[in-house]
Design a protein around this nucleic acid. Structure first.
Length: 479
RNA sequence: GGCGGGUUGGCGGAGAGGUUACGCAGCGGAUUGCAAAUCCGUGUAGACCGGUUCGAUUCCGGUACCCGCCUCCA
């Protein structure tokens, strides 16, 4: 039995994990606001919690884990994008434009995260499908004295929740002293936050006891986790940047709405991503999306490998060099295991060392080290790598297409057959071995290398393999 | 200003109070027509200053520097 230990932000300690119900382990992770392509930073929590999900499924059984990750499709950034499109002359209604935008973004998100080898959560609720539940929860909070209505807004009364600030280690008084909060005149206390706000004609809105409006950002997670996982569940995850205010506010809402329950038992936060040592931001010009990388030819599994190379609790630096090393390692693994048949995930047992590493607060870096150590046992390497989401069917299909294209296999599409050139080089080499004059061999070899072909001469023959820099046009002259 | 994280060999990056991390690169060797690949071997690091200890890179305190959150971007 593998024990799982996790760093719980609530206690700031690594704790042994014990689910409320081993028959149904429940995890909620904050998902994206769907207004644009996911950037590289968005991928980190997805991959971190994908590993945790895989581990939980292994330990408790596939059918005994419920993983929920939401889509935030009510947000002023989405509204702004829709209004921008309308401003550009699109005649459709704002609602239609918003729906189109969120649909489009969700399909992008799925495509991009699939490419990283992340399993889909069991449920991916959309905020707009839970407005009724949010309104009910807000009404309940008002009834219990934890919220109040003012000028069409409903605000959460922070002072009514004694433990406010415990998760993020802040006190209400200190934060007010920091005075970075925008203080709306209708707030009883500067730290009070919005549960519901009014919408004018130009904004999407829903009818509520407080007039037509839309929910604040935090209430959706409280409402959806309650609906789908119950008042108490096991793990709540997300980026450390969400710890305050988002998660703090979620706790306040949920704990006050359901004071008898404990909400989430374990809070797991991943640290942020940097690029070449700096924060990724639009202003620094080092901002890019997952799709940007995929389009540049960086395989999704390379991104996955780089991400898992750093412990989730530490800042992760994306660098060109790491990308390169990950690429080489995965290339090597693919070659080693290419001829083998993967074992069904259900019928093989991952290496205990690997499971122990993952169970130890998700030490993915150490897990990768153990994986590397399996290179003399390719079948084990393949199966264990696949357990961690590498050498997946998807990656092997891409590899198959690649090999078929360049080796004259049975694939469709344009095919460049290198076998004739390999044969030619081999013949020249045999002749040269007699004559001791290798100039013709070397000339052909350097031309091939120049065209981006890897040349391997072994005692048994010659092997040619195209690299990512392969340029078939340069081979025409050689034929 | 408040809160949090980090600082390990050329680079990336772990674990452990005293014993080899590992990978990449480098170096030596085997192999090779030459290379590549592969295999074997090889690395006296732990920001700084104190303290605890028989012994600390590992525990405690302080200093410096870096980074993040609190503000649209995770």
């Amino acid at each position: 039995m593998t024990t799982i230990r996790l760093r719980n932000s609530k206690s700031r300690k690594v704790e042994e994990f014990h689910p409320i119900d081993p028959e149904n382990v429940r995890m909620y992770v904050c998902g994206p606001t769907v207004y644009d392509r996911a950037h590289l930073g968005n991928a980190r929590p997805v991959l971190v919690f994908d590993v945790l999900y895989r581990l939980l499924r292994h330990v408790y059984g596939e059918g005994h884990v419920t993983y929920v990750r939401n889509f935030t499709d009510v947000d002023d950034k989405i509204n702004a994008e829709a209004q921008r499109r309308k401003g550009l002359g699109d005649s459709r209604s704002l609602e239609a434009l918003i729906a189109e935008r969120t649909e489009e973004t969700i399909s992008w998100y799925h495509a991009d995260m699939d490419a990283l080898g992340a399993l889909r959560p069991d449920q991916e609720p959309r905020a707009t499908a839970f407005i009724g539940q949010m309104i009910a929860m807000i009404g309940d909070l008002i009834a219990k004295g934890h919220a109040y209505e003012k000028e069409g807004h409903v605000l959460f009364r922070v002072r009514s929740y004694q433990n406010y600030g415990v998760l993020s280690g802040r006190s209400v008084d200190d934060m007010i002293a920091g005075a970075r909060v925008e203080v709306a005149p209708f707030k009883e206390d500067p730290m009070d936050f919005v549960l519901w706000k009014p919408s004018d004609e130009d904004l999407p809105g829903w009818d509520s006891p407080w007039g037509r409006g839309r929910p604040g950002w935090h209430i959706e997670c409280s409402a959806m986790s309650y609906e789908l996982l119950g008042a108490s569940f096991d793990i709540h995850g997300g980026g450390i940047d969400l710890q305050f205010p988002h998660h703090e506010n979620e706790i306040a809402q949920s704990a006050c709405a359901h004071p008898e329950a404990g909400f989430a038992n374990y809070w797991v936060h991943n640290e942020m991503l940097q690029v070449e040592g700096k924060k990724m931001s639009k202003s620094l010009g080092n901002f890019f999306t997952v799709r940007d990388l995929l389009d540049q030819g960086v395989p999704g599994e390379v991104i996955r490998f780089v991400m898992l190379g750093t412990h989730y609790g530490k800042p992760m630096d994306w660098t060109e060099r790491k990308r390169e090393e990950a690429n080489n390692t995965l290339r090597y693994w693919m070659d080693l295991t290419w001829e083998l048949e993967p074992t069904n995930l259900g019928s093989f047992q991952p290496e205990q060392k690997l499971l122990d590493a993952l169970g130890d607060d998700m030490n993915t870096h150490l897990a990768l080290t153990y994986l590397r150590a399996l290179h003399h046992q390719p079948q084990k390497l393949l199966d264990n790598a696949r357990f961690l989401g590498f050498l997946s069917d998807r990656a092997r299909e891409a590899e198959r297409d690649f090999r078929n294209t360049f080796r004259g296999g049975f694939g469709s599409g344009p095919s460049v057959d290198l076998s004739a050139l390999a044969l030619k080089l081999d013949e020249l080499r045999n002749v040269a071995k007699e004559s001791k004059n290798f100039s013709a061999v070397d000339a052909l070899k350097s031309s091939l290398i120049d065209a981006g072909v890897e040349v391997q001469m072994t005692k048994t023959g010659v092997e040619l393999r195209p690299t990512p820099n392969f340029d078939p046009s340069k081979l025409e002259a050689l034929k």
